[in-house]
Amino acid sequence: MSEKASFMARTGPAALAIAGLLLAWQLYADLSGISATTLPSPTRVAQQAWIQRQALFDNAVPTVRATVLGFGCSLTTAFLLSILMDFSRPLRRALFPVFIVSQTLPLVAIAPLVVLWFGFGLVPKIMLVALVTFFPMLVALVQGYEATEKEIVQLLHSMGASRWRTFWLARLPSALPFFFAGLRISITYAVVGAIFAEYAGAAKGLGIYILNAKNNFRPDLVLAAVGVSATLTLVLFGITVLVQRLAMPWLRFEQEPSR
């Protein structure tokens, strides 16, 4: 199958499903006589989004910034901690429960508190994005290290490799598929996390834009902002897929027989 044809085969069904949903929504909004201030049709949302494009863009920029910075922090922390936890079993035993508890904190309660403590600036947003994205990546990495083939570890041992050398040569590369799986889960939380943080208090951003639009009874603009955030998430997701392909070129050959 050619590159282009296989791309169509993979994305075609998704595009059709989305188009079908939008069409049903449009028909319902047009035919049921529901008011545009309750449920605007997709064409109206698109039209308003186009009119408001400058404002949407200006508000998307801080959200993207918070997302990317928060995600970067969380990625770095998860990576460093995963190494420490891989080398020290007591540390793993001590920290894992703490991180699990951190995942049970309801964002609705935490977001306003973090804003209260750290103000309306970038810091609380970065922290909240990091909080929601950190755990899946950490778990994926720690699990990935564990999944290293025993034979490979024994082989390196027989060659006289140190623990540290074994980590770099075998455990880290073995964890890559797990890491990228965790990354894809995390990235879908990231934008939502940033918007939530802004919702709790911000000068600018998609979160605050959504809040204002809702207070002004403009569901069309709320939905326009939601559309922007969904697009951002999709783009970030696409980037992780691309990065994975670049980082793991051998994956292509392993998947071939099963497809």
Partner: peptide, 18 residues
């Protein structure tokens, strides 16, 4: 000690896929 001066080939080939 660590260096046993033996070359070991594991039961499965243990080639690194990456």
């Amino acid at each position: 000690g660590r260096n046993r001066n033996m070359a070991f080939m594991p039961q499965r080939d243990a080639l690194m896929p990456w």
